[in-house]
Amino acid sequence: MDSDFDSALAGFIRRRLGEVGGLRVEGDARATGGQSRENWPFDLFWEDGEQSHHRRLFLRRDPVGSVLETDRRVEYEVLRRLHDQPVRAPEVVWLDADGSELGRPALVMTRYDGFNDHFILQGGHSQFDEDTRAGIASQMVDLMNEIHVLDWRGAGLHEVLVVPDDPATAAIDEWAAVIEHQSLEPQPVLAMIEQWLRRNRPAPGEITVVHGDIKPGNVLFDGDRVHVLLDWETVHLGDPTEDVGWVTNPLRRAEHQIPGRWEADDLVSAYEARTGQTVDRAALRFWQVLANYKLAAIAMTGVRSFCDGRTQRVWSGAGLLGKVLLAQTEGGLL
């Protein structure tokens, strides 16, 4: 970390730990992988009287130009409430909600053992055999179900998240607003998709917690075990089929499927077996289209950050997403 950031972080920690001795922060590399947040793993050491302490922590800070503009306070409050719930969410430790201490809004979380492997189901870095990968895929469904059966009222999530009357309309409105706000030019393809979504939106049903970005790339694995689901910045209350649509998005087969062994139908069947409920296929199609509409909104945000000079990542356009969305709304690619 650079020296300005080092001293800001030391001050941030001191204000939370109080007057302790031997305070030391170790960690010097920004971790890659997050496009919407800067990630800094670090180790914290301090002494309190006779006792020595060591905590392994992870700082996630908003970048200057992000692909997702979400509120760190909401994420912090959700994770705080999930800590004693039966869900594999990380423990949050501290928050800088407005960035007044660390330069930009940031969360500090407990750092867990494990590794990250975006394409673990296709082999990825881990190169597990097919049976092991199928087992991991099945655990991903367990994880999704674990989130959907959470007692969100009991956990107090309604205190920090909006309870939508009509989740589909709320989702269209949310991402249409992002596209409207972030686009640097007219988007006729996305206008057509928005109209398709409005014509084909499913009726409101059961409201559950929706993670919004379930994928192996957001999981820490411990061997072949799904250990912790990281990155809860898009969590909200809504229709559980939204998560099912996200993980069966045809554009992201490489992350969620094993060709010939664990494909979209297998995933949906496994989810239905866990929940005992049939997934409405028309609703699933809506949420699969919404998944790519949301990705297009995220891409628009990235393009704007790049064109405004707020990010170092060089972005290209969202042509492939437009192509997939057109095919999806013509009935293909399901």
Binding site: P188, A191, E194, Q195, G322, E330
Partner: peptide, 22 residues
């Protein structure tokens, strides 16, 4: 874009244009 937002459904010509333009 304005025409698409105002129409009930896009015409086949508009769809074809969008597909080709990508």
């Amino acid at each position: 874009t304005d025409e698409i937002m105002a129409a009930a459904e896009p015409s086949p010509e508009v769809r074809a244009y969008l597909s080709d333009s990508i």
